[in-house]
Nucleic acid binder design. Structure first.
Length: 379
DNA sequence: GAGACGTGGAA
DNA sequence: TTTCCAAGTCT
């Protein structure tokens, strides 16, 4: 690993910030240093690319102009504003933190990284990003860009997938941060990491800091950062139950214990949920349909006659799970009360008004293409 | 400390 | 189609 002298650090800051002042991106959340703006943008940008965030950020600010508006928002409006962005706990945590600021802090933001980290959804990266950008605290914001940029500049071999490596990077970067412009410094590193020093196809030869790049001089740019791989997603077979009645389609809201919590889907059942305790092998489609029909008649008191929908199962891959969903459908002549099933009937044309996860949109699209054209208007 | 937690884009 | 990412946090 390389080590920089005080002189090198000075020169690096000067070169980096001169480039940033010249070519830094003009982004909607960089128009001012309002902590609310910085905070919302930083949370949206977690594990999400800038181009994806921009329209969401602009819509979010139009919908919730101030931290008070966000704190007072109803959950449906909030989740709808976050629909499609993913990692939906961010939206719930964002509102919880807004309520903390309004109620616990009487509208006055904590101005240090340590103080900001007490708010829900603000971790070691985001706390430092907000503190440096909005309040000028001299701390490094160590995100994926900082890991990539500094692991290459200094040829740091430590595995960035390990939580403890963050502490090492913080100690290394801390003395390099420009004490006069910490926010600009951190944002310059991010712009560098998303332009010349990208993960794939970097253009280090034209990087403004190539003279400081030890991995470039050693022709080992792609050896950094060192990161161990995550396991592949686990296959999860599902059934989606599409029940239609005169009152519309049956939708259910994901509970707080489930992923996608708060969002609406057709009833979903894992194949594993249908297996009898003493079953030694998977039961097959006909047996599963029989089990489901029996369950809906007895447990939910909604008598359904299920038919398979044609085509391949709908496939949707998350970071840790790969769902393969077979569609089953039933049409009821009368609308039964949902006394024993936690859901509601929704007219087809009103489904899109609910907050829906991507997988629900995929299921609706498949249903339309398999003999039910223009029902939901998603294709 | 390892795993849960979404989606869209690029190769 | 598959794989790997992209401004992480929480448990």
């Amino acid at each position: 690993m390389e080590h920089w002298s005080a002189t090198t650090i000075q020169a690096f800051r000067q070169t980096l910030l001169a480039w940033y002042d010249r070519e830094g991106r003009d982004l909607p959340w960089r128009r001012d240093q309002d902590p609310y703006h910085v905070w919302v943008s930083e949370v949206m940008l977690q594990q999400t690319q800038v181009n994806t965030v921009i329209p969401y950020y602009q819509n979010f600010m139009a919908t919730f102009p101030t931290v008070d508006d966000l704190a007072a928002a109803d959950q449906e409006t909030l989740l709808k504003a976050w629909q499609g962005l993913g990692y939906y706990s961010r939206a719930r945590n964002l509102q919880r933190a807004a309520q903390q600021v309004v109620q616990d802090y009487h509208g006055k933001w904590p101005e240090t990284a340590a103080g900001l980290a007490d708010l829900t959804g603000i971790g070691p990266y985001t706390s430092c990003a907000i503190a440096s950008i909005a309040f000028g605290e001299v701390v490094p914001a160590v995100d994926g860009n900082a890991f990539r940029v500094f692991s290459r500049l200094l040829m740091i071999e430590d595995d960035i997938a390990k939580p403890q490596t963050r502490q090492l990077f913080k100690r290394i970067i801390q003395p390099i941060v420009d004490p006069d412009r910490p926010g600009a410094f951190n944002q310059a590193i991010m712009d560098l990491g998303s332009s010349y020093m990208t993960s794939k196809n970097p253009d280090t030869a034209h990087s403004p800091v190539k003279d400081f790049d030890a991995s470039f001089k050693a022709d080992r740019v792609l050896d950094f950062p060192v990161k161990t791989k995550k396991p592949r997603p686990k296959l999860m077979p599902y059934y989606a139950i599409i029940v239609q009645s005169p009152a519309g389609y049956l939708l259910t809201q994901r509970t707080t214990q489930e992923m996608l919590s708060g969002y609406w889907t057709f009833p979903l059942v894992t194949q594993a949920d249908l297996q009898a305790e003493d079953a030694t092998e998977p039961a097959g489609l006909d047996a599963d349909i029989a089990t489901l029909e029996h369950r809906w008649a007895t447990e939910y008191q909604v008598p359904v006659k299920l038919s398979p929908v044609g085509g391949q199962p709908v496939s949707h891959t998350y970071t840790h799970q790969r769902w393969q969903i077979k569609l089953l459908t039933a049409t009821l002549v009368e609308t039964p009360p949902l006394t024993f099933y936690p859901g509601k009937w929704v007219l087809a044309e009103q489904i899109a008004d609910l907050p829906l996860p991507k997988v629900q949109e995929k299921i609706m699209a498949r249903y339309e293409k398999q003999g039910h054209p223009d029902v939901f208007g998603v294709n």
